[in-house]
Design a protein around this nucleic acid. Sequence first.
DNA 1: TCTTGTGGGTTTGATTTTCAAACTATTGAC
DNA 2: GTCAATAGTTTGAAAATCAAACCCACAAGA
Lengths: 164, 164
Amino acid sequence: MQRTEDTPPRPPAVSVPGRPCSAAAALQLVGEKWSLLVVRELLFGVRRFDALARNTGAPRDRLTARLRSLEEAGIISRRAYQERPARYEYHLTEAGQDLAPVLFALFSWGDKWLFDEPPAVLDHRGPDGREHRMPLGHPPVCPTCEEPVSMQDVVPRRTGGDPG
Amino acid sequence: MQRTEDTPPRPPAVSVPGRPCSAAAALQLVGEKWSLLVVRELLFGVRRFDALARNTGAPRDRLTARLRSLEEAGIISRRAYQERPARYEYHLTEAGQDLAPVLFALFSWGDKWLFDEPPAVLDHRGPDGREHRMPLGHPPVCPTCEEPVSMQDVVPRRTGGDPG
DNA sequence: TCTTGTGGGTTTGATTTTCAAACTATTGAC
DNA sequence: GTCAATAGTTTGAAAATCAAACCCACAAGA
């Protein structure tokens, strides 16, 4: 299936087994091994195949497969940065950049539960150009009632569509 | 390896290939297929094997394997709720409950990019006991400089440990 | 007593994924 | 003419996944 030049990359429709759920649908596109690590590297600005392989640790053939499926999912785009010899680099689409909160949440959880001292910290470059440590891991707050959200108090409700 | 009654369930140490990173470490524990969907169901209060199998869509043998590895990872605990016949239910540990933000981020991304109308919405039961729709998907804001965070402006820095 | 149902799994055998390592192809630099 | 760099592909073996069938202890109903 060839994507024409002018088709805006947008994730395709997915169907999920079990409970109808956006998170499950999301995981169908980014839940395979290495996929989110590839997104992490692209978020950090890494662009080239070899660097992606080194920084993720993914086997090269798996990396190739993931890059293809992420591209098909509209999460990354591949573009040549030179011809002869053909060389490519990978970029996140807008949908791909929007995965940053997922990575932040994983960073935060890993920092809290898996390490006494985090193996790496994130610095944020603010609008003044200066960098400062970026703390992660503020618990989610319901923007409506402004209470911290415990999932105990969250109930999923189906919207339209076929009944289960 | 038997876990004694008094050992508090805490995720074990993990090592990751590629870039040293808490997110990668987190994915080693919850990145296998079905794991995060199991956590989702437990967050929703589903407790029993059969219901977990139905609601996630996981094959029963995979579900068994995931429940065991999540337990070993200190993310869930298994307890008998009756003997004769032995019947079990599954609960999230504190570490497991802390995965809620990861699921929220996936919900949010899926809602935004994969559906015109979300297949399910989350309602929040506030402290007054009344329920209201819970909007997801506010972009992350740096708590230090209070700017919305673009990952373009985030740089990972290694902390102590062996140099790469 | 015999059957059916429920809960929580195992087992089976086939398919699919993953893996590390070796290999290829194109080109520029020395 | 040899070397290195980039972006993969190929190979053959190991591991993970799958649907479906099976199992066991018990309870309820006929």
